[in-house]
Amino acid sequence: MRSLASIVLGFETVLLALVTPVMISVAGVRPAVAVPVCLGLAVLAIVSAGLLRFRAGYVLGSVVQVGAVGLGFVVPVMFLLGLAFAGFWVAAMVLGRRIEQAKKAHQAQTGQAQTG
């Protein structure tokens, strides 16, 4: 689960960094507002990726998803991109849990076969 989540956050970091000039040039947001908001979310994504071995990393990652969708109020295309990454985030959580459960079941089955 952790590796899938870190991949999503890594790509989202790039997206959040690239939306900064879009906010400034297309949406007309002042650089003093756009830079801290977008790059702050990008830094938060990096920090949360580093904390994924703890529950706090997943909580911060979810905050990043909400922030990315919230940027859609300024740059409407971010509703679409933010929701896409939020979907990737949920998929990483669901698929990651399934993979971990399958690994545990396989290890338990393999361990029983070796002892039997």
Rank of each mutant, 00 (worst) to 15 (best):
S3A: 07
L4C: 01
L4P: 00
S6W: 04
V8T: 14
V8A: 03
V8W: 01
L9R: 01
L9T: 07
G10K: 09
F11Q: 13
T13Q: 06
V14E: 11
V14S: 13
V14I: 15
L16Y: 04
L16D: 00
L16S: 08
L16Q: 06
V19D: 02
T20M: 15
T20P: 06
T20S: 14
V22C: 07
M23L: 15
I24C: 02
V26I: 15
A27V: 08
V29D: 01
P31S: 08
A32W: 08
V33R: 01
V33S: 05
A34P: 05
A34I: 02
A34R: 00
P36L: 01
L39G: 03
G40W: 05
G40T: 09
A45P: 13
I46Y: 01
V47Y: 01
S48T: 09
A49K: 03
A49V: 07
G50Y: 02
L51D: 00
L51V: 03
L52D: 09
L52Q: 11
R53A: 09
R53Y: 04
F54Y: 12
R55Q: 08
R55M: 04
G57K: 01
Y58N: 02
V59M: 12
L60Q: 01
L60H: 02
S62H: 05
V64C: 04
V64G: 05
Q65N: 09
Q65P: 09
V66M: 13
V66E: 10
G67I: 00
A68C: 14
A68I: 03
A68T: 15
V69C: 07
G70S: 11
G70C: 03
V74F: 10
V74A: 15
V75G: 00
V75W: 13
V75N: 04
P76K: 04
F79G: 07
L80R: 08
L80K: 06
L81E: 12
G82K: 11
G82E: 06
F85P: 13
F85D: 06
F88L: 15
W89G: 04
V90N: 06
A91C: 12
A92T: 13
A92C: 14
M93R: 11
R97G: 05
I99V: 14
I99N: 08
Q101W: 03
A102D: 12
A102N: 12
K103I: 06
K104S: 07
A105M: 11
H106E: 15
Q109F: 05
Q109N: 11
T110K: 13
T110S: 11
T110Y: 04
G111E: 14
G111P: 00
G111Y: 05
G111K: 11
Q112K: 10
T115Y: 11
T115W: 12
G116F: 02
G116K: 13
